[in-house]
C-alpha cells in the first residue's frame, strides 16, 4: 500500500492512490462474483430477483447464502442467515463512525451502503486524512468495487447456463465459504468460534429450515468469547507482578 507524506494524492474526482490500493483487493472478488452469478442461474429464486442482490445488498457471502438457501430453507431462515452474516458490518460502522462524523450528511448516508470488507480494510488506514481527501479516497475504492462486482455477477449469469453439469459448479459455494472462513480467522478465539460453529452446525444438520446455521453460529460466537476470556486471564496471571514493598 502506498502513502504520500501528507496523505493526499492530488486533486480530481478520482484518488489515484485509492485506485492502486484497490487492485489487489478487487481481483479476488472477480471469481467470487462470477460464482455468485453462476449460483443465480441455479437458484430457486426468480433469476431477476436473485440478480438484484448484487446492486441492492452488495455483499458476496450474504448474497451467496440467500441465493443458495432459497428454496431449501424457510423465508425467515434465509433472511436470518443474510443478516447474521452481515452483522460484522456493525463493527466496521463502529470503527469508522468518528471519521464519518466530519463528513457531510449525504456522505454519512450514502457512504455506508458501499462499506464492504475491502473498503473497510483500506479506508480504516486513511482516517488521518482531511475530510474531503478521505471522502475522495473512500468513494474511489468503494465505487470501483461496486462497479467490478456489478459487471462480474451478470457475466457469471450469462456463462452459467452454458456450463455442463459435469463441471460440478454446485460444489463451488461450499469451497468459497471454506476459503472465506479461513481468511476470516485472524486470532485464536476466531479459530475457536469457527471450529465450534462448524461442529455444532454439523451436529444440528437435521434441524428443519437449516436452523443449524443459526445454532452453530451462536454456539461459535459464545465459544469464541469464552476462549477470549480464558486467553485474557492467562495473560494476566503470566504477567510479572510489580515488586511489593516490605511490610513494616
Amino acid at each position: 500500500m502506498t502513502e504520500t507524506p501528507h496523505g493526499t494524492t492530488g486533486r480530481g474526482i478520482v484518488d489515484r492512490q485509492a485506485l492502486t490500493d484497490i487492485i489487489p483487493l478487487a481481483i479476488p472478488a472477480i471469481p467470487f462474483g462470477f460464482i455468485v452469478g453462476l449460483a443465480v442461474t441455479e437458484s430457486a429464486m426468480p433469476q431477476w430477483v436473485a440478480w438484484l442482490t448484487a446492486p441492492l445488498i452488495f455483499a458476496g457471502a450474504a448474497q451467496l447464502a440467500m441465493i443458495t438457501l432459497a428454496g431449501a430453507a424457510s423465508l425467515w431462515a434465509v433472511i436470518t442467515a443474510v443478516l447474521v452474516i452481515n452483522i460484522r458490518h456493525v463493527m466496521y460502522s463502529a470503527a469508522l463512525a468518528p471519521t464519518f462524523r466530519k463528513q457531510p450528511r449525504w456522505m454519512r448516508r450514502v457512504g455506508p451502503f458501499l462499506l464492504v470488507d475491502q473498503t473497510f480494510a483500506l479506508a480504516s488506514l486513511q482516517t488521518h486524512r482531511a475530510p474531503a481527501d478521505f471522502r475522495r479516497y473512500y468513494l474511489t475504492v468503494a465505487v470501483t468495487l461496486y462497479a467490478v462486482w456489478n459487471v462480474v455477477v451478470p457475466l457469471g449469469m450469462l456463462v452459467g447456463p452454458v456450463v455442463p453439469e459435469s463441471w460440478r459448479l454446485d460444489l463451488a459455494p461450499p469451497i468459497m465459504f471454506a476459503g472465506l472462513t479461513l481468511l476470516a480467522i485472524k486470532k485464536i478465539p476466531a479459530a475457536v468460534a469457527a471450529m465450534v460453529g462448524g461442529f455444532v452446525s454439523l451436529a444440528t444438520i437435521d434441524l428443519r429450515d437449516r436452523l443449524g446455521i443459526a445454532v452453530g453460529a451462536i454456539a461459535g460466537v459464545i465459544a469464541g468469547a469464552i476462549a477470549e476470556q480464558i486467553i485474557e486471564r492467562r495473560a494476566c496471571t503470566a504477567r510479572p507482578r510489580p515488586p511489593q514493598e516490605p511490610l513494616r
Partner: peptide, 10 residues
C-alpha cells in the same frame, strides 16, 4: 469479531 468466522464455518 468472532461472528464472521462462526457464521461462515456453520
Amino acid at each position: 469479531q468472532n461472528v464472521g468466522p462462526a457464521v461462515l464455518a456453520a
